[in-house]
Design a protein around this nucleic acid. Structure first.
Lengths: 143, 143
DNA sequence: TATATTTGAGATTCGAAAATCTCAATCGTC
DNA sequence: GACGATTGAGATTTTCGAATCTCAAATATA
């Protein structure tokens, strides 16, 4: 079950890593994240750019530069990250990929899928970066 | 939110179409399905082959040939189709795509995602082809 | 101000899924 | 038995997301 794109997955892993370091008001180097997590550096810069443009992160060039979360990890939710990277219409898509599907002209699985998406969205809305990072306290855990 | 592959989507649309025709013990031509639903003929034959090999369908070559459901539509569930086409491990995958993730060594989102997948799987298990086809009674509905 | 470090941005390459094409196998009908 | 209709199977091409590469812009530090 492939739900998120690679870009989102990488970014999520990176943000969980950043959150777990819990260093406020300090830039974390993208290069360092890339090395620690074995994620393509250039791939990361691209996704971080998007999040910076959308206001979730602040970035800083030059030595001691990097990225920094703009809000406390308790106030950043999974849904924010996913919508910013996958697009605001992430939860609006039809299971069968039918372009015309909607409330006005629902496909056979429209209502079924609407419920499923609603439940998933609720989970994403209630799960913060702090929740996700909490699991990482255990050092043996791999991200 | 992209959940199913194109192959599965096409097959699902095709099976809903077949189910909605409600013609027992009669072969439905793949060519006809392809034309009606504007789905690539060769793509359909491929996915139907898989379902035939796995016992969900019976196929028949030659004139008046086609495919036929092996069970009543009430007894074919969404989960069957999805697992046959996407693979039996469809609901086992890690949200972050981490290969080592599992009960023994869970990733930060493992338990969160396990619950979500469990709920989705349950929905798929409880939704039959008959349920999906029921919506099609309305002729204006597009599949 | 010179330099090393780091992100920004876009071009290019790679690979897997998607789509198409070709021919073989099967079978009803005449 | 010949022919046309239809699925079976695999090869080939196309497309698009993923990954890489290259250079520009910014800035801390000495």
């Amino acid at each position: 079950m492939r739900t998120l794109s690679r870009a989102t997955i990488y970014c999520l892993r990176a943000l969980i890593y950043v959150a777990s370091r819990n260093e406020k008001d300090k830039y974390v180097s993208i290069g360092q994240i890339s090395e620690e997590l074995h994620i393509s550096f250039h791939f990361l810069t691209k996704t971080f750019q998007t999040l910076t443009q959308q206001g979730l992160l602040t970035s800083h060039r030059g030595p001691q530069g990097g990225i920094m979360l703009n809000k406390p990890v308790e106030e950043i939710f999974l849904i924010d990250i996913v919508l910013m990277l996958e697009g605001q219409n992430f939860f609006d898509k039809c299971l069968l990929g039918l372009p015309g599907c909607g409330e006005a002209e629902p496909c056979p699985v429209h209502n079924f899928w609407k419920d499923v998406k609603g439940a998933l969205k609720k989970e994403f809305e209630e799960t913060s970066l702090a929740d996700l990072a909490a699991g990482i306290a255990n050092k043996t855990m791999r991200i």
